[in-house]
Simulated assay, not measured.
Amino acid sequence: MTRGGVRCMGRGRGRPAAIVDGTQSPRHYWGSELARLREEAGLTQQELAAKFPIDSSHLHRLEHATRKPPDLEFVEVLDEFVMGRGHLVKTYKMVLRLEAGAKYADYFAEALALEPTADRIDWYGGSIVPGLLQTEGYVRALTVAAHPFWTAEKVEKTVDDRIRRAAVLHRSTPLQMLAILDEAALRRPVGGRQVMVEQLDHIAELASDGLAVVQVLPYEVGAFPLLDGQMIIYRFVNDPPLVYTEGSVSGQLVEEKSEVDESILMYDLTRGQALPPSESLAFIVDAIKEHQGNV
Results as ranks from 00 to 15, higher is better:
A17H: 10
L72P: 06
A109R: 11
K68I: 02
T158K: 01
A223H: 11
A105G: 01
G4D: 15
L211W: 03
V195F: 04
A141V: 00
D201G: 10
R27G: 12
P16Q: 05
A18P: 02
P70N: 06
G126K: 11
P53V: 02
V89Q: 01
A141T: 04
L227F: 15
R164M: 14
L72E: 12
F74R: 05
M231F: 15
D119E: 11
W150I: 00
L269H: 14
S278A: 05
A35C: 02
V139G: 04
A282N: 09
E110K: 01
E153Y: 10
R7D: 11
G12P: 00
V82T: 00
E262P: 14
I264H: 00
D160F: 06
G10E: 08
Q230W: 02
A18V: 06
I288H: 03
E76A: 05
E156I: 03
Q24C: 02
M94Q: 08
R7V: 15
A118K: 12
E110C: 02
A102D: 15
L133F: 14
G293M: 03
G272L: 02
D228T: 13
L88A: 05
A50E: 01
P16F: 08
G4Y: 13
Y219N: 08
L200T: 13
K90L: 00
V237S: 12
V295R: 03
I128N: 06
D160N: 10
T143K: 07
A146E: 12
R67H: 09
L59K: 05
A274E: 02
V77Y: 06
E205G: 06
A166W: 08
G126C: 13
I233A: 11
T2V: 15
S250L: 07
P241W: 09
E40A: 03
R67N: 04
V254W: 11
D21H: 15
E115K: 10
Q215I: 07
E205C: 07
V237H: 14
G137F: 08
H58S: 00
Y244H: 06
V168L: 01
G22P: 01
M1S: 12
L265F: 10
L178G: 14
R11P: 03
K93L: 04
E47M: 09
P241A: 14
G42P: 02
G10I: 05
F236D: 06
L181C: 10
A282Q: 07
A102R: 12
I128W: 11
L269W: 14
A282R: 06
T91V: 12
D228R: 14
T2Y: 14
V139M: 08
V190Q: 10
Q194K: 13
D261N: 15
D55S: 04
G125M: 13
N238L: 10
T44E: 05
D79E: 03
V254Q: 12
P148L: 15
G22R: 05
E198C: 02
L200A: 13
D21G: 05
A274L: 06
L114Y: 10
T91L: 12
R140Y: 07
L37I: 00
G86N: 09
K154G: 04
L227V: 15
G192Y: 11
A204L: 08
G125S: 15
L226W: 08
L169F: 14
R36P: 00
A287V: 03
D228L: 15
E262W: 14
G31W: 15
F236Q: 09
L206I: 11
R140N: 06
Y124C: 06
A145F: 13
E220R: 15
I232Y: 01
A282S: 08
R162M: 11
